[in-house]
């Protein structure tokens, strides 16, 4: 698939935002398909076979999370959610329902396009490489080796599993619950405190400025994301 010719379905009830995204997407070489309601979006997803969907959570006709659930019954195409600040629970519900990423309105266009590219890339290459590199951080999954500026970092098994989970989904936002489920198992999915402690320990070992994390980014009230360079 040629990424530059990717087809993007935009589902938003606001005409102004549809127009803005249409211009932004076509200027980047994408083909934009517009749709103004949840129902319309779901049928457009089936008929026009887009490569990614940009979905506004506040639709007039149906709940955005429900739209994701219905889409996920038959397709795994990347879904990027548009949401407003202050509705963290909606974002978590959307991500848990299977959305790939979210952007908080208002958003910077470069950031939005970067998220879209990353989502398209992940969809194109579902199997991640065994070597992850970002700035000074190197994680070799095959050898279970973590180095920072060439120096090996000693991690506990829990910390390593946590980092591994983030590396496997590098660039993608993971909700607290998704991480807990994947690293510790289904019965631990409410142990938020344990997750925070491990993230804090991991950060102490790989982040130099604790006030400005470079690798493990906090996603406001939602979860964490491993930054890709």
């Amino acid at each position: 698939m040629n990424q530059d010719k990717a087809r993007i379905l935009v589902v938003d009830d606001e005409q102004a935002i549809r127009r803005f995204l249409h211009v932004a997407l076509t200027s980047q070489g994408y083909t934009a398909i517009d749709s103004s309601s949840g129902q319309e979006g779901i049928s457009a997803a089936a008929t026009s076979k887009p490569d990614a969907i940009v979905l506004d959570l506040g639709l007039p006709d149906m709940d955005g999370v429900e739209v994701i659930r219905l889409l996920r019954e038959w397709t795994q195409i990347p879904i990027i959610v548009l949401s407003v600040r202050g509705s963290e629970t909606d974002k978590i519900a959307a991500l848990d329902a299977g959305a790939d990423d979210y952007v908080t309105k208002p958003f910077g266009l470069p950031e939005f396009l970067a998220r879209l590219r990353a989502a398209l890339r992940r969809a194109a290459q579902p199997t991640s490489e065994s070597l992850f590199e970002a700035d000074d951080l190197k994680v070799d999954l095959a050898r279970r080796l973590v180095t920072l500026s060439g120096k090996q970092v000693q991690l506990t098994p829990n910390e390593y599993d946590l980092l591994r989970c983030l590396v496997v989904h590098a660039g993608k936002v993971l909700t607290h619950r998704q991480i807990l489920r994947e690293v510790w198992g289904l019965s631990y999915e409410r142990e938020f405190h344990m997750l925070h402690v491990n993230i804090s320990n991991l950060r102490r070992k790989i982040e130099s400025d604790r006030a400005r994390p470079r690798y493990i980014v906090t996603e406001s009230g939602v979860g964490y994301r491993l930054k890709t360079s």
Partner: peptide, 13 residues
């Protein structure tokens, strides 16, 4: 907020 989404989006680009 709706107008701000377009304004901030365009200016950031």
């Amino acid at each position: 907020r709706t107008p701000l989404v377009s304004v901030i989006g365009v200016l950031s680009s």
